[in-house]
Design a protein around this nucleic acid. Sequence first.
DNA 1: CTGTTAGCGCCTTCAG
DNA 2: CTGAAGGCGCTAACAG
Lengths: 343, 343
Amino acid sequence: MRARMEDVARLAGVSTATVSRVVNKPECVSHETRQRVMDAIGQLEYKINLAARSLRTNQTRTIAILIPTIAEPVINQLVEAVEDVAVTENYSLLMCSTRGDSAREQAYIQQISQQTMVDGVLYVSPRSAPEQVLELANSDVPLVLCNYHVEGTGTPCILADHVSSIYQTTSHLLAFGHRRIALLNLAALHYYPARMRREGFENAFAAAGLSPDPDLVVELREPTYDANDWRGVINELLDHAHPPTAIVAFNDKVALEVYAVCRARGLCIPHDLSVTGCDDILSARYLDPPLTTVRIPAYELGQLAMQTLLMRINQTDPTIHKTTLLDVELVVRESCAPPEQAL
Amino acid sequence: MRARMEDVARLAGVSTATVSRVVNKPECVSHETRQRVMDAIGQLEYKINLAARSLRTNQTRTIAILIPTIAEPVINQLVEAVEDVAVTENYSLLMCSTRGDSAREQAYIQQISQQTMVDGVLYVSPRSAPEQVLELANSDVPLVLCNYHVEGTGTPCILADHVSSIYQTTSHLLAFGHRRIALLNLAALHYYPARMRREGFENAFAAAGLSPDPDLVVELREPTYDANDWRGVINELLDHAHPPTAIVAFNDKVALEVYAVCRARGLCIPHDLSVTGCDDILSARYLDPPLTTVRIPAYELGQLAMQTLLMRINQTDPTIHKTTLLDVELVVRESCAPPEQAL
DNA sequence: CTGTTAGCGCCTTCAG
DNA sequence: CTGAAGGCGCTAACAG
């Protein structure tokens, strides 16, 4: 629209200050004047110019959410939660998804830290080198990390308990009597949760007074989101002279691949092989048999992360506890059974 | 950062205009001067203020994408495509997802049309009343519609061919010899593609010189994304005195529910019942049996929509063809077979 | 190739 | 409760 506040002011016979008040603090303007101004606004189809406002107020009312992809169920629930909070708090959400492209991740970080464009950043599952994450953490843009952990800086970190998730699925299988349990993990460079999952796996064995067979721990370093590479790995595992009786997949998508391989080999889950996943994606319950997995509180994660970021921005509570670990819940379905003694 | 262009200019011993040029048209500045300015920028940790730039240039370099939810595979692929184009063209993406809440959809539309905040809007799968969509179309914000169609206004519409998708799955079943085919459709208020799907269903029958049994056409008016309501409907259909031998689901999620119901009833797909879906979500191929469905060119849709929007914004080509229909592809897997003659 | 100058549209003290 | 006035930081003519 062409009309500016000045035009509205003239038409309503008031000053621009009053128009501004009508827009921002209507309660501070007399009912009568307000009405006149509102009419003028409608008549001129006046549109408020956010750039001018931002320039003046020094805040953009926009936050950026930096994520690896939007196509992961856990992440898109998290994003939805963030947006829900943003909407109630009158913030807009800038989507920055990197699609596993580290150059793009870098570019986004540059953009955010070298331009005044957002009031804060939510950085989910960083894949960048720790130094780069630190660089952002040490810049003057308020930051909250999700699914990542840094120490030293005052950056709040909100995490699901990745140790616990794999600990729980592994323990579940151990309780069934499995001993030869394989772990399918993603250990891409700078991918933080991988270590925690590995730890959960080992802790579960340790708690049972056992230790895992290193041969059965597979850590793919492929940073992409392409699931194809898993098939080869799974087949290798099953071709092993002394194959596993159970597989702990680090997420449900990989568990899906285990299902596919079993189907191709004529193996019956859970009779011939027990399988667990993680994330509880939609299709987990529709598989045959339904998949035993772990529910990640993705929505709560996003909510908490956004609330924390808002507190940082408003400096409401500078003593926000630095890192929060959210509990995770085992969802037992039908993909696990005692191992075949015959094997 | 505190530093403004003026500070940089002073430190580098040049004018602000030169600093601006270094930032925006580096090729128009001598190598030497540029270097000096860049050093100053680094030294002062100068951050460019986008609000000031926008105020001056009268463009935000931001576009809004208005979507019903982010958690649908087709939509999130589309969004990814949009973002990919945005990144290459130096635009930012504002996420506006309504989560099936029409009040929120309205609020977003208000915000977009009554504030200068974005250079354009991509409106995907509107659920609002047609008048409201038209209101946005007639505002001065460049708009492109996805998965929707309006006539009269010059608004470009980019659509997947919803008629064809259901036409193809229905024909596939007819070719197997099915005659009692049920349609599970979503006909939420103002949900545009529902009509097209219904049309595809009926056209397929007509092309075979047949007509569908109206008893077997179910159109749920539930506007939510909750899939639970479908179970009851599916059970009713199968309890019918003369039940269908095949079910055409309007999308894969609903087909998933058909699988679940069949599993619960001890029915074997495709032996006892043939099923088709639409969208080709990830899990479609992991089901047992793998689901016959339709691939929607979601990425291409998003790409084309964004490119079209950019042309509108830049007025590169005011003669953009108004509406584009993208082809859709049947993916035959194993969820369909000839009907049991015994039934 | 570089500098001068004049706003972009709004908010926000400060008076009245 | 309302008005006057200044400036947020940047870009884009226009000169030189």
